[in-house]
Computed example of a mutant assay.
Amino acid sequence: MTIRVGILGFGGLGQAAAKVLAGKQEMTLVAISDKQGFAYAPNGFDIDAAIAAYNQKGSVGYLEPSGVLSQDSIAEAIAVAKDVDGYFLALPNLPNTFMASVAKQFIQAGWRGVLVDAIKRTSAVEQLIGLAADLESTGITYMTGCGATPGLLTAAASVAAQSFAEVHKVEITFGVGIANWSAYRATIREDIAHMPGYSVEIAQAMTDAEVEALLDKTNGVITLENMEHADDILLERLGICDRDRVTVGGVVDTRNPQKPLSTNMKLTGRTFEGKISTHTFTLGDETSMAANVCGPAFGYLKAAHQFRQRGICGLFTAAEVMPQFVR
Rank of each mutant, 00 (worst) to 15 (best):
L21F: 08
A53G: 00
S59W: 04
T28C: 12
A31H: 01
A53P: 02
N43H: 11
I51E: 10
F45A: 10
A31C: 14
G37N: 08
F38M: 01
A49L: 11
A18W: 00
G37E: 05
F10V: 02
K35G: 12
E26H: 14
L29V: 00
A22S: 14
T28L: 15
A16N: 08
G61A: 05
A49P: 01
T28W: 10
N55T: 14
G23W: 09
D48T: 07
A31L: 06
P42R: 00
Y40N: 03
Q15M: 04
N43A: 13
A52R: 15
G14H: 04
Y40P: 09
P42S: 06
D46A: 10
G9P: 02
A53D: 00
G14M: 12
A22E: 05
Y54I: 14
N55H: 08
Y62F: 15
M27G: 07
I7R: 02
A17C: 11
Q56R: 09
K35N: 15
A16K: 09
D48H: 09
A52E: 10
P42H: 02
A50L: 00
V30I: 15
F10E: 00
I32S: 01
L13H: 07
L29M: 08
I7P: 03
I32F: 13
A17R: 05
K19S: 12
A31P: 12
P42T: 06
M27C: 10
F38L: 09
Y54T: 12
S33F: 11
A41Y: 06
G37L: 03
D46I: 03
A50Y: 09
N55R: 15
M27H: 13
L29E: 03
I7D: 10
K24Y: 02
Q36Y: 15
A22R: 14
K57E: 14
A31K: 03
M27W: 01
E26F: 04
L29T: 03
V20A: 14
T28S: 13
D46S: 12
Q15V: 13
